[in-house]
Design a protein around this nucleic acid. Structure first.
Lengths: 192, 192, 192, 192
DNA sequence: GATGAATGAGACTTCATTCAT
DNA sequence: GATGAATGAAGTCTCATTCAT
């Protein structure tokens, strides 16, 4: 497909992504000039690898998106539709509040990299399928539709951001919020 | 309290706010220079009235915040705790997706105007009280705490933004999302 | 000469000068808008009394300049020419490092108020006369000429500023510097 | 240490500094925007080379500071402590009234460039050493201490500025002032 | 006389992107 | 391929002064 990079170019690529990852983790906005300086590379080099800050950000987010997409695939194998559905959303929500590169990438419509679009599509489709199965099993109410899943996960992530608090709290909070939301999606609340 | 503005100054004030309102509605980021140019005023004039873009944005948001706060007060008079609680959140959610000035103002911690802080505090406190009443009436689960209410409303607004769609859909979507969330918060789903 | 001010105008005048004095003492640069706000007056009022920041600053400096000029007059009565000369310069130097309004006023060529020019001229002339007497008495070397006196006092004030240190040190430092300088001006060092 | 600049960048650097030099000589305050316009360069280019107006000013001043520092070193080799001390101060005073970039740089505490701090420190230390030697040789009175030297030189420069007069006079005036000051510092006036 | 709103030039700085070397 | 200098629009904000009310 793509020509493999020359060894040094690959080294640069790795370096750029590593630096960007670190910046994202520290909450520093990605600026290609800045990344270049920190990486000890020329801006041009960074631009050669990544056409825009968004492209770099998406590259940083890719492994996480891939792992989520993989989880989505696996979840399809689960025999309990609700558990599969719930587990998938939990993973997504946790990832969103854990990895700062995710929120902006999932929240936008326009992707810089085709790979990003593929992965987001894959997530969407996994979510839809899981939702449909749960629906057919009578476990979810039709109130929210498949296309709502990812937006809602973005909403949870944003709610957690707004709430503030220490980074240790974030996962807990996200879980509480998701649990609540799921409570409203479930068809047969555990009243029995 | 405050001296009423001179007639000409008031005219300018109104004009600035009106232009800002229009910009916000079109999704254009507020820039004081830009507002000044469009209003046919000197930058200094705009800065005299609004010390920062945030101050102007908050001013634009104020009427809406006031109306929400007023609704919060009224809701306290409702004898049905759950209905009062639900009604309040519904109003907040609708406002958030209807008025683009609200989201950034409610999502930040640092307010430019004291009035904004008052109103936000008032909303928070109304939400808390309504939640507590519903709680004491056994209508809500303790899963989410009062402090979570506003963040969650911000989350819903964000989810609606991410979902996209026409502005006509937005209110419906917000309602669906809120209904779902409330479904998860309610202690005794009306199954009885 | 000048029409006496109406009572309220005089009150405003006093107030403005008092505020300006306080600002100068705190090292805050004089801005007429700022002064007006702090005085609870309109800018226009301040401009009516003082045509420019410089005019206000000179007004603030005036009492001190007057007292120095008065001292200059008195010094002429002293029978010991060197003591008179030395005493005058000491007073000037102390004033310069004590009253922050003085340095800018004495250092510039262009005065905003005629009164300032008069006072500066008076100081200059007093210094010249004292220098001439000391000269005729054989107490000073002709190395520095009369016109150098005030510039040198400004130089001392500036040296004290550059040196930094607490405000308590300033007078001592100024005295040391002046003593040294005078040591170089005196014709018969106390070697006898 | 530092990578040499590319040829074109060096050309721009030189140009910027040359223009800044000219402005300083004309007494025009350095403004990076202004310098950029006069140099026919983008603002960004000037900012790339000089992070702030102060940094540019210090760069303009550097050669002169270096030459003074070099003189300081050489002066240490002089066998006559007083002559060395006097010669050093004379050079500094002359430079101050000759090169308008010096006064603001020497008068401030906070340097924009590390190189400037080094050079200022070097001057300070040379002055201190020369003073100490002269002191040990019994040539100076302990009235002014080493830390006073640079402030006093700034004071002389300022006195010369205040005095005004043609630029031809300036050096003469500075010499007279310094001579007088040194007269007051010297322990054994050549009366013997 | 007093007021204070309005002015607007102009300073500072940032940053995404291009392109000569 | 890599470099990094250059670009310049655009945004921020300040402040001395004027003039309508």
């Amino acid at each position: 497909m793509t020509t493999p990079l020359r060894k040094d170019a690959a080294r640069n690529w790795d370096r750029i992504v590593a630096i960007a990852r670190a910046l994202v983790d520290q909450g520093v906005p990605l600026q290609l000039n800045d990344v270049a300086r920190r990486a000890g590379l020329g801006v041009g080099t960074v631009y050669r690898h990544f056409a825009s800050p968004e492209a770099l950000l998406e590259t940083v987010a890719t492994p996480c998106l891939e792992s989520l997409a993989a989880h989505g695939e696996q979840a399809l194998a689960d025999t309990d539709p609700w558990r599969a559905f719930e587990g998938f959303l939990l993973r997504v929500a946790e990832a969103q509040v854990t990895d700062a590169s995710l929120a902006p990438v999932t929240a936008t419509d326009t992707d810089a990299l085709p790979r990003t679009s593929e992965l987001k599509e894959s997530l969407r489709s996994a979510g839809d399928t899981l939702w449909n199965r749960a629906r057919q099993a009578g476990a979810v109410r039709p109130q929210v539709a498949p296309g709502d899943l990812l937006p809602l996960m973005c909403g949870i992530a944003h709610a957690v951001d707004v709430r503030g608090g220490t980074s240790a709290d974030r996962i807990d909070t996200a879980r509480r919020y998701l649990t609540t939301l799921l409570g409203g999606m479930r068809a047969n609340p555990a009243t029995a």
